[in-house]
Structures are given as structure tokens and as C-alpha cells.
């Protein structure tokens, strides 16, 4: 009986010492700055027939001089290139297909981003219809939008303001939809571990320790 209680006391001493050790670990870690994550991410979007990519490490540092490889759905590599000092790399759409942009930042860091076929088509048609009626330069576009001078008789009647607003809003929503979708994906990808995640992970570890202790205790009692 006494032997048993002694054993038990020994056990609590051990537990106490582990708490001390945890305190030590936290003490060591406290001054470190929670700055960056250990992940690279690449983000790609299409403009006309050019695909732009932006690569960075978690936390926002640009991935400079990293290798970008572009694959089609069959896994065939279409092209490869290196990011510049801003972590950017652009290339002409090599073919109308779903493209997988893979970022290789070296020493085992890798990320990828998928550009869908629909996105590429959309960007392409959007550009061609957008630039057909007028020259692509901004000045010309503005000119086209301004109603013809009052002396002109052939020009269309100016639109009522409300109607014009509706049309513009509709067009804006149409244009922004894919961008908003991509933004959401980007935010999701760039999400940093927050306190909730970290505490959740620690909780899992202790839960598993509980399971292990239960199994070990059963074994010992048998």
C-alpha cells in the first residue's frame, strides 16, 4: 500500500516537472516574434492573353528568383521561368486550357495555383469585345464614352442617368465576379495560423496524450 502511494507521488512529481518544462519552453519562445509562415504561395490571374503570377512566402515576403513551371491538365510542362525581384512572372497564355502554375522556391518549398480554362476564355473575349469599338488607349475610350457634341445630329440620344448607372453597375458586377472569387481563394491560401489554430493543435496533442495514457494504464492494470 505504502509502496503504491509512493509510486503515485512519484508520478505527480513527474507531472509537475513536465509542467515546469512547458513553462521553460514557453519562456524561451516568448520573446520570439510571430512573424512569418513557412509556406510559399503563388497567385495567378489572366489579363487579356497574358497570365501574371505573384509569388510570396507566407507573411508577404516576395519569393525572388523562384522557378515557375506551368503545366496543362495532362501534366505536360508548357513553359518555365523565374520570378523577378518583386516575385512576379508573366507569360503569354500558351494554350487555352486549364493551367497549373507551380512555384518552386527551392529547398522543398512549393506552391501551386490553378487557372481555369473558363477564366482564360473570359479574359480573352473580354479583351477583344472591349477593345473592338475603340482603340485600347484610355483616352480614346473616354472619348467614345462622352456623348457627341451637341452640334452632331447622328449621335444617339444621351441615356437617362439612372439607366446609365444600372448598365455600369451590371457591367461592373460582371467584371468583378471572377476577381472576387479569386480574391477569396487568395485570402484563404494566405491565411496565417492564428491563436485559435495553435491552441487547437495543442489541444489535439494533449487529447492524444490522454488516449495514450488510457491505453498504457489499461495495459499496466492488466
Amino acid at each position: 500500500m505504502t509502496e503504491r502511494s509512493e509510486k503515485k507521488r512519484n508520478g505527480t512529481g513527474r507531472v509537475r516537472s513536465w509542467v515546469l518544462r512547458l513553462a521553460w519552453i514557453l519562456f524561451i519562445l516568448a520573446p520570439a516574434i510571430p512573424a512569418q509562415a513557412h509556406r510559399v504561395s503563388v497567385f495567378a490571374w489572366v489579363e487579356g492573353d497574358t497570365v501574371h503570377t505573384e509569388s510570396k512566402f507566407g507573411g508577404g515576403r516576395k519569393a525572388k528568383g523562384a522557378v515557375i513551371e506551368v503545366y496543362d491538365e495532362t501534366g505536360k510542362m508548357l513553359l518555365t521561368g523565374k520570378t523577378d525581384d518583386n516575385g512576379a512572372f508573366s507569360f503569354a497564355v500558351p494554350k487555352i486550357a486549364t493551367l497549373e502554375v507551380v512555384l518552386k522556391a527551392g529547398t522543398g518549398h512549393q506552391g501551386s495555383w490553378t487557372v481555369s480554362e473558363a477564366e482564360i476564355r473570359e479574359a480573352k473575349t473580354g479583351m477583344s469585345t472591349g477593345s473592338k469599338p475603340s482603340a485600347p488607349s484610355g483616352e480614346a475610350a473616354v472619348e467614345a464614352l462622352t456623348p457627341p457634341s451637341p452640334t452632331g445630329t447622328a449621335g444617339p440620344a444621351p441615356m437617362p442617368v439612372q439607366e446609365l448607372r444600372n448598365v455600369v453597375e451590371e457591367a461592373m458586377a460582371e467584371q468583378l465576379r471572377p476577381i472576387l472569387g479569386r480574391l477569396a481563394r487568395l485570402e484563404d491560401q494566405a491565411r496565417e495560423p492564428d491563436l485559435k489554430d495553435i491552441l487547437g493543435g495543442i489541444g489535439y496533442i494533449f487529447g492524444l496524450a490522454g488516449v495514450a495514457a488510457y491505453v498504457a494504464a489499461r495495459k499496466r492494470n492488466r
Binding site: V15, W18, V19, R21, A37, R61, A105, H109, I205, A212
Partner: peptide, 25 residues
């Protein structure tokens, strides 16, 4: 077991605290 869990937790947290240095973190 308790000790292993505490060390695992310490390792888990330590790897999350990153300091930028050189080309990576």
C-alpha cells in the same frame, strides 16, 4: 506520455514562430 505530449506541443508551437532571414524564414 505526459512529457512526450508536452515536448510535442513545444515543437508544434516552436515551428510556427518564424523570423525572416536570408532567402526564406
Amino acid at each position: 506520455i505526459a512529457g512526450a505530449a508536452l515536448l510535442a506541443a513545444g515543437f508544434f508551437v516552436a515551428s510556427l514562430i518564424h523570423v525572416p532571414l536570408g532567402p526564406g524564414n
